[in-house]
Amino acid sequence: DESNKPILLPNESQSFERSVQLLDQIPSYDTHKIAVLYVGEGQSNSELAILSNEHGSYRYTEFLTGLGRLIELKDCQPDKVYLGGLDVCGEDGQFTYCWHDDIMQAVFHIATLMPTKDVDKHRCDKKRHLGNDFVSIVYNDSGEDFKLGTIKGQFNFVHVIVTPLDYECNLVSLQCRKDMEGLVDTSVAKIVSDRNLPFVARQMALHANMASQVHHSRSNPTDIYPSKWIARLRHIKRLRQRICEEAAYSNPSLPLVHPPSHSKAPAQTPAEPTPGYEVGQRKRLISSVEDFTE
């Protein structure tokens, strides 16, 4: 099969070098950035008060330690540790928490760990991170309901609301924008112990962030949302095809390698009803078989 044979790379090609550099910018793992907010007593309706908090309760602090690993920003190499735009020179604080497994990295933009500057009256330095995160974990210690939209931002799609209760338990629920209701189930609340709260809140936030990324990708319907490693695979396959075309153009005697095509017509299947918005969006999480067989 010609399409699977190794090909020689061009010795000097600026377009090839640019493509390789672009490939280096696509990590081999999925990345997520999640905002974390603490809401104190009497702050449920005040964005400024929430963003001005420099610490929270003892249970909130224990919750943070379970979310991930504490890292010092100045020691991080952005090409190895995903920071979601946090500055490593102290502009966004000294520490944050991050978490990773074999296929993804997540960083938490924690408002109480970011510096509260006197010259920044409206807390814009914090909002440029927190307001651009799709998902926020809100530790609501106010005793009042927290409403979506209290923290203004164009991309605040989903809130994971943590409400501490007695007996070391917590109520965990989801809020989302109306255009996200087909992807996020907000109907079920959970009672979770303090011990298990970081794991549950983190998983709910990661799932909500993946759904938000799919939702946000609708602005470019021709580019369905893939995982990062599938995006790398697609980029490599496009690069291979372009090299083959350039080689055939410079030397017409060489065969032009095309991806294999299936001449056999697909079997006719009964027509199915058109899937609704929710089903269609969830299918976009699934990769096409052509990603692996071309």
Results as ranks from 00 to 15, higher is better:
residue 262 H to R: 08
residue 254 L to N: 15
residue 205 A to Y: 01
residue 91 E to G: 13
residue 52 S to D: 06
residue 231 A to F: 04
residue 120 D to I: 05
residue 97 Y to M: 15
residue 182 G to V: 07
residue 286 I to K: 13
residue 18 R to C: 08
residue 178 K to M: 06
residue 230 I to F: 06
residue 120 D to S: 11
residue 13 S to I: 07
residue 113 L to S: 05
residue 239 L to F: 09
residue 294 E to K: 07
residue 43 Q to M: 02
residue 230 I to E: 12
residue 197 L to D: 00
residue 240 R to S: 14
residue 274 T to Q: 10
residue 174 L to I: 05
residue 59 R to T: 00
residue 254 L to F: 12
residue 262 H to P: 15
residue 268 Q to L: 10
residue 192 V to F: 02
residue 257 V to I: 06
residue 141 D to I: 00
residue 53 N to W: 00
residue 41 E to T: 07
residue 245 E to T: 11
residue 210 M to A: 02
residue 152 K to M: 09
residue 210 M to R: 01
residue 111 A to I: 02
residue 37 L to A: 02
residue 9 L to P: 10
residue 97 Y to P: 03
residue 54 E to A: 06
residue 55 H to G: 15
residue 20 V to W: 06
residue 203 Q to Y: 02
residue 204 M to P: 00
residue 122 H to N: 13
residue 62 E to P: 00
residue 35 A to F: 02
residue 233 L to T: 14
residue 204 M to Y: 03
residue 25 Q to Y: 06
residue 260 P to V: 09
residue 35 A to N: 02
residue 270 P to Q: 11
residue 278 E to N: 12
residue 176 C to Y: 05
residue 231 A to E: 15
residue 292 F to C: 13
residue 70 L to R: 07
residue 231 A to P: 12
residue 92 D to F: 08
residue 163 T to K: 06
residue 175 Q to F: 02
residue 20 V to N: 06
residue 159 H to Y: 15
residue 46 S to L: 03
residue 157 F to L: 14
residue 128 R to G: 08
residue 200 V to L: 05
residue 294 E to T: 11
residue 263 S to E: 13
residue 38 Y to F: 03
residue 178 K to F: 09
residue 225 Y to N: 07
residue 37 L to C: 03
residue 32 H to A: 14
residue 51 L to K: 03
residue 140 N to F: 00
residue 243 I to S: 05
residue 208 A to V: 03
residue 50 I to T: 03
residue 138 V to Y: 01
residue 179 D to G: 07
residue 276 G to I: 12
residue 197 L to N: 00
residue 152 K to V: 06
residue 179 D to V: 05
residue 97 Y to F: 10
residue 11 N to K: 07
residue 28 S to C: 06
residue 212 S to H: 02
residue 63 F to I: 00
residue 258 H to F: 11
residue 173 S to F: 06
residue 89 C to H: 08
residue 81 V to M: 12
residue 259 P to V: 09
residue 258 H to L: 14
residue 199 F to L: 06
residue 8 L to A: 12
residue 262 H to Q: 14
residue 222 T to M: 05
residue 214 V to S: 03
residue 115 P to C: 05
residue 254 L to K: 15
residue 278 E to L: 06
residue 107 V to S: 04
residue 131 G to Y: 15
residue 213 Q to R: 09
residue 213 Q to A: 09
residue 107 V to I: 08
residue 247 A to C: 14
residue 187 S to H: 06
residue 262 H to S: 14
residue 28 S to K: 07
residue 72 E to A: 11
residue 246 E to I: 04
residue 98 C to K: 07
residue 2 E to G: 07
residue 140 N to Q: 00
residue 126 K to T: 04
residue 161 I to A: 02
residue 155 F to T: 08
residue 5 K to C: 15
residue 39 V to I: 06
residue 208 A to C: 12
residue 140 N to H: 01
residue 66 G to Q: 03
residue 235 H to F: 09
residue 180 M to L: 13
residue 148 L to H: 13
residue 111 A to H: 03
residue 45 N to Q: 09
residue 24 D to G: 04
residue 277 Y to E: 15
residue 283 K to D: 13
residue 113 L to Q: 05
residue 95 F to H: 07
residue 237 K to S: 07
residue 73 L to P: 15
residue 123 R to P: 15
residue 27 P to H: 04
residue 167 Y to Q: 04
residue 206 L to G: 00
residue 212 S to T: 04
residue 254 L to A: 12
residue 214 V to C: 07
residue 154 Q to P: 15
residue 200 V to G: 00
residue 26 I to M: 15
residue 286 I to Q: 14
residue 279 V to D: 15
residue 281 Q to E: 13
residue 188 V to A: 10
residue 222 T to Q: 10
residue 268 Q to V: 12
residue 278 E to K: 06
residue 156 N to C: 07
residue 189 A to E: 11
residue 206 L to M: 05
residue 160 V to H: 00
residue 133 D to E: 06
residue 253 S to R: 07
residue 161 I to P: 00
residue 115 P to A: 05
residue 286 I to E: 14
residue 51 L to R: 03
residue 142 S to L: 01
residue 272 E to L: 08
residue 86 L to F: 11
residue 22 L to Y: 10
residue 269 T to W: 12
residue 6 P to G: 10
residue 32 H to V: 15
residue 203 Q to I: 08
residue 91 E to H: 11
residue 187 S to F: 03
residue 178 K to Q: 10
residue 294 E to A: 09
residue 204 M to Q: 03
residue 49 A to H: 03
residue 280 G to N: 08
residue 161 I to F: 01
residue 113 L to V: 03
residue 60 Y to S: 00
residue 281 Q to I: 08
residue 103 I to Y: 10
residue 221 P to H: 06
residue 44 S to E: 07
residue 135 V to G: 00
residue 1 D to P: 15
residue 89 C to D: 14
residue 160 V to R: 01
residue 285 L to A: 14
residue 66 G to S: 03
residue 59 R to G: 00
residue 268 Q to T: 12
residue 114 M to S: 05
residue 63 F to P: 00
residue 273 P to V: 13
residue 288 S to R: 11
residue 154 Q to D: 13
residue 201 A to G: 01
residue 97 Y to I: 15
residue 36 V to T: 01
residue 110 I to H: 04
residue 165 L to D: 02
residue 7 I to S: 07
residue 266 P to Y: 08
residue 113 L to I: 03
residue 75 D to K: 14
residue 36 V to F: 00
residue 160 V to P: 00
residue 84 G to N: 15
residue 263 S to V: 08
residue 185 D to W: 01
residue 275 P to R: 10
residue 92 D to N: 09
residue 215 H to L: 12
residue 114 M to A: 05
residue 251 N to V: 13
residue 140 N to I: 00
residue 167 Y to L: 05
residue 264 K to V: 12
residue 230 I to T: 06
residue 168 E to P: 01
residue 102 D to M: 05
residue 145 D to Q: 08
residue 238 R to H: 15
residue 247 A to V: 10
residue 253 S to H: 14
residue 139 Y to Q: 00
residue 202 R to Y: 02
residue 190 K to W: 13
residue 156 N to A: 06
residue 215 H to Q: 09
residue 28 S to G: 13
residue 46 S to G: 02
residue 57 S to P: 03
residue 187 S to R: 09
residue 158 V to G: 02
residue 6 P to N: 09
residue 167 Y to S: 04
residue 167 Y to K: 02
residue 5 K to I: 15
residue 171 L to D: 02
residue 90 G to I: 04
residue 250 S to L: 10
residue 169 C to H: 04
residue 113 L to G: 03
residue 248 A to W: 08
residue 105 Q to T: 12
residue 156 N to P: 13
residue 164 P to V: 01
residue 149 G to S: 12
residue 205 A to G: 02
residue 121 K to N: 14
residue 264 K to W: 11
residue 134 F to V: 02
residue 252 P to R: 09
residue 269 T to F: 09
residue 47 E to G: 02
residue 182 G to H: 10
residue 104 M to S: 13
residue 228 K to T: 05
residue 64 L to M: 07
residue 68 G to N: 03
residue 277 Y to N: 14
residue 127 K to R: 15
residue 80 K to M: 04
residue 41 E to I: 04
residue 154 Q to K: 15
residue 212 S to K: 01
residue 102 D to S: 07
residue 206 L to T: 02
residue 252 P to G: 08
residue 112 T to G: 02
residue 43 Q to F: 01
residue 157 F to V: 09
residue 155 F to Y: 11
residue 22 L to W: 08
residue 184 V to W: 15
residue 62 E to A: 07
residue 258 H to D: 15
residue 118 D to S: 13
residue 181 E to K: 06
residue 142 S to M: 01
residue 279 V to H: 12
residue 97 Y to G: 03
residue 232 R to H: 09
residue 167 Y to P: 02
residue 171 L to P: 01
residue 273 P to R: 10
residue 203 Q to R: 01
residue 217 S to C: 08
residue 5 K to E: 15
residue 253 S to L: 06
residue 209 N to P: 01
residue 110 I to C: 05
residue 21 Q to C: 07
residue 186 T to L: 06
residue 44 S to C: 08
residue 9 L to D: 12
residue 47 E to I: 01
residue 121 K to R: 09
residue 14 Q to F: 13
residue 159 H to F: 15
residue 157 F to M: 15
residue 74 K to L: 03
residue 264 K to L: 11
residue 275 P to E: 14
residue 126 K to Y: 05
residue 43 Q to T: 02
residue 93 G to W: 07
residue 284 R to T: 12
residue 125 D to E: 08
residue 263 S to P: 11
